[in-house]
């Protein structure tokens, strides 16, 4: 018998995200479970508290009374708008480049594929600040490629909004590639073969058969990449700087505010937390239940 296609990697990612946020259903089941060994239960509960305590503290210390005026200030909206636009643009860039890259890694046979995959995932583990420095060296005004961009096309990326998008895409794209590649591997490549025997070229087979099949993985990967881009700090501040209205995204604004106006920092953090929860809820509602 065949193994019908299941968007497996999506499930993995959901589980990963779920543990971080503390999914109610799963926690209840563990608590009610009979015979959970104490040496597992105690550290598990401690871990849960450890993850939830900071978030609770954020809620406890939120200046609820002054919140409306904090959140309606022009700077907050500026930063939030910029964050949303840049994260979305970075996700779009990741999609356009990352999905074909994932296909290449999952389907094409070539020498050194393992090495390429390792290099692609490097930004996942690379400290973002290092990523920012590397981006400066590559695309900076005097960078390896940047000097030509500057002298030939007059394009300058560092310390611009476009630079924010570049920095965020650099950090976020591996998430999408890994997610999509996992889904592609789980998808039966023989569907593409079936399409080819029906007269579809390899690209048509990809576009009309594979792409719809791996849509759950692409969606999950996009959300993950988008969330990562939204929270991106290190590479952004290094490569694009911290100019309000131009490159100052929410995380940068939070960091800056924490030094001048802690209450504002808390308010901004609350907004980001709300966005994160919304993303998580969206993931669960849309891709966890539709199977």
């Amino acid at each position: 018998m065949s193994t019908p296609y299941r968007p497996d990697s999506g499930a993995e990612i959901r589980t990963g995200a779920g543990t971080r946020g503390g999914p109610g259903g799963r926690r209840a089941r563990v608590g009610a479970g009979r015979g959970v060994p104490l040496p597992l239960l105690l550290p598990a509960l401690a871990g849960l508290v450890f993850l939830l305590l900071p978030l609770t503290a954020l809620l406890v210390r939120t200046p609820w009374r002054s919140l409306p005026e904090q959140l309606t200030s022009a700077e907050v909206w500026e930063a939030l708008r910029l964050s949303l636009i840049c994260a979305s643009a970075a996700t779009a860039v990741s999609l356009v480049l990352g999905v074909p890259l994932a296909w290449l890694l999952a389907r094409a046979e070539f020498r050194g594929r393992g090495l390429v995959r390792a290099l692609v995932t490097l930004p996942l583990v690379l400290p973002p600040v290092v990523g920012g420095v590397a981006l400066l060296l590559a695309l900076g005004r005097n960078g390896v490629v940047g000097q030509w961009l500057d002298s030939w096309f007059g394009i300058t990326l560092p310390f611009t909004t476009a630079g924010v998008v570049v920095a965020e895409a650099f950090v976020a794209m591996p998430f999408l590639v890994i997610s999509v590649e996992g889904t592609l591997r789980a998808a039966d490549p023989r569907f593409e073969e079936a399409a080819m025997t029906l007269g579809a070229s390899r690209f048509t087979a990809f576009r009309r058969v594979t792409l719809p099949l791996i849509m759950p993985g692409i969606a999950a990967g996009s959300v993950l990449a988008w969330a990562r881009a939204l929270g991106e700090f290190g590479a952004t501040i290094t490569f694009a700087g911290n100019f309000p209205g131009r490159t100052q995204t929410m995380p940068l604004a939070v960091y800056l505010a924490l030094q001048n106006d802690p209450a504002a920092a808390v308010a901004l953090s609350l907004v980001l937390l709300a966005v994160s929860v919304a993303v998580l809820a969206g993931l669960r509602d849309r891709w966890a239940t539709v199977r």
Binding site: P4, F191, L213
Partner: peptide
């Protein structure tokens, strides 16, 4: 094909 490979979508 043996397991038909009908496009599920």
């Amino acid at each position: 094909f043996q397991d038909y490979l009908l496009f599920p979508h």
